[in-house]
Design a protein around this nucleic acid. Sequence first.
DNA 1: CTTCCGGATTTGATCGATCAAACTAAGATG
DNA 2: CATCTTAGTTTGATCGATCAAATCCGGAAG
Lengths: 345, 345
Amino acid sequence: MARLPTVLDVGLLAGVSRQTVSNVLNTPDIVRPETRSRVEAAIAELGYRPHASARRLRTRRSSTLGIRLDPMSNNGISGSVHDRFLHSLTEGADARGLRIMLFTATGPDDEIRQFRRLHDGADVDAFVLTSTFFNDPRTEWLIANGIPFVTFGRPWGIDDMNDPRHLWVDVDGRSGLHQATAALIAEGERRVAFLGWPSPSGTGDDRRLGWREAMAEGTDLSPAELDELQPAVEDGVAQGREAIRELREAGIPFDAIVAASDALALGALLVVGPDVPVIGYDNTPVAEAVGLSSIEQPLEEVAAGALELIMGATGSSLVDWEADPDAPKHRLVTPRLIQRHRRIT
Amino acid sequence: MARLPTVLDVGLLAGVSRQTVSNVLNTPDIVRPETRSRVEAAIAELGYRPHASARRLRTRRSSTLGIRLDPMSNNGISGSVHDRFLHSLTEGADARGLRIMLFTATGPDDEIRQFRRLHDGADVDAFVLTSTFFNDPRTEWLIANGIPFVTFGRPWGIDDMNDPRHLWVDVDGRSGLHQATAALIAEGERRVAFLGWPSPSGTGDDRRLGWREAMAEGTDLSPAELDELQPAVEDGVAQGREAIRELREAGIPFDAIVAASDALALGALLVVGPDVPVIGYDNTPVAEAVGLSSIEQPLEEVAAGALELIMGATGSSLVDWEADPDAPKHRLVTPRLIQRHRRIT
DNA sequence: CTTCCGGATTTGATCGATCAAACTAAGATG
DNA sequence: CATCTTAGTTTGATCGATCAAATCCGGAAG
């Protein structure tokens, strides 16, 4: 195979220098229109493609975002969330001329090792983190090392959610649970239980709060009664099933259930039978398949928001925070309730 | 932040030249052990990381594989297959010092455009393709342009499945359906229907064949009777439901169903009730959640196989086929049946 | 008519690594 | 003792692009 054409070849054909070709590619507005079109014709004729590595070496920018592929999350049910987010992110990145590079890690420490490797090797400019948790060492490390990143998930446990060095996008789970709970109350249910995760869990506590608020607004249950109606277990179908079974055996009556995840909701479904309404969270394929109502997260919007925060509204290079301190630093998007009718007993 | 250390800095500290540092990194065996450990100490002390782009520019190798992120496949149910494959692939790649770069495309033509962009830009060395289909233009183009690739899926519709220029790994769906069908026959079922996809479909026809063979071996049904028992519809829960409904309305009796996908199987489940056994394909989270028996594809093995075919048993650079014409060119792995008991009516 | 200005373009240097060839020193060979 | 070999290491050139500074040129200003 012949050598691929370079800026020099294009320049020779168009009768200009390499730099002018480079200018046509990067700063077209400073090139005379006539020259520009001549260069563009030459590019097309030769089928020229810029050599990404050469450009990266010189500019010290990779135009690539790194993202860790989650370890097959728990039961696989909510894996579709990460999957959908990743897909939207890749599409949005493509549209901006960015690339997405994947990696895996065995835990937070290993992930930090990967951060260093990929960043120092100039493989990626910035990282997108998912599943943030309390006192996440990853974000601390990235901030300390001045490496740009954006998280899908709020900086739970940090005093200042508005730290300008920590960009984040998140879904307002509190609103989601509020919607779900309010919808059940509107249908006449009174004792709506919340099947959630053990505290502290940023996401879990936030969702629980939405439920409590809706209950306080729409029912006359006392705080003590609410406390009884909020079993907390690790995520999973089996765990959800057991939790609801125990709630029932403890003699605590409930009319309906809202859950922190579809996996928990499914576990609940397997216990309560068709007459007790259950609402899940994440709107996974499983929820759709069994006819489970669920909260849909607008992941396209989350992905678009992540890109906007880190690369600007339409840019393909990092936003310079020093220069533009007023740029937005986070975004909270609102999920919505998807109502379905049941197909499982 | 200070400038990152380079090979030169490491060499200065260790008292050797840049090239010796490079040799320690790439061909350690030609460096005197004593020198090597001195260099390694310097590397550790400075926290040196090779600049990936510089290396790529010089070597013309990116040590990166490109893979298209599938457009949210059909109903999202079987999306988990691609997801799991991608995960295994990324882990295997990490272990070899390779990276995975994602991209999306709106269709085969657009995907070919991306191939050219990523390959000419030296972003990736090779591609991993999924979901191959009849007369796939992508593989033709890649072969014509001499770009290395491996497919997850056989080259359906091509005369020569052993074309050494087309590396592939696939799961033996025929064996999977044979297992499922034989298991049902062993349990005493006789009229086992096959709910599949319209022909021609490489994967679909292959799976159907496994069913027919098992039926021919284990029952006395005539070919004409079998023809009646194989409805074919596009993939999807609704389509599966309708197909089985029509089969029933047509007055064609059946005792059990094997399906070409979990989505179709789930559709069937919604019609037949708890007494008719149904077996799906892909062992998705949905199957697990509703207690649907299904065929599990060993995706770790598929991913490992893909890497081995293209990079050699443990290598991190492309296998040179000219030099080693006897290297394996494809691999067929066997799936296995997962038996469950039903949770849906 | 000369000088200055600014837009358009070109030239020289550089990013960080590896390749290819040259060099060095110690041991083997005749 | 001079020459050859070879393992180990160094030097010069290069990959393809962009940055920074220099050059060119036509028109406005004095």
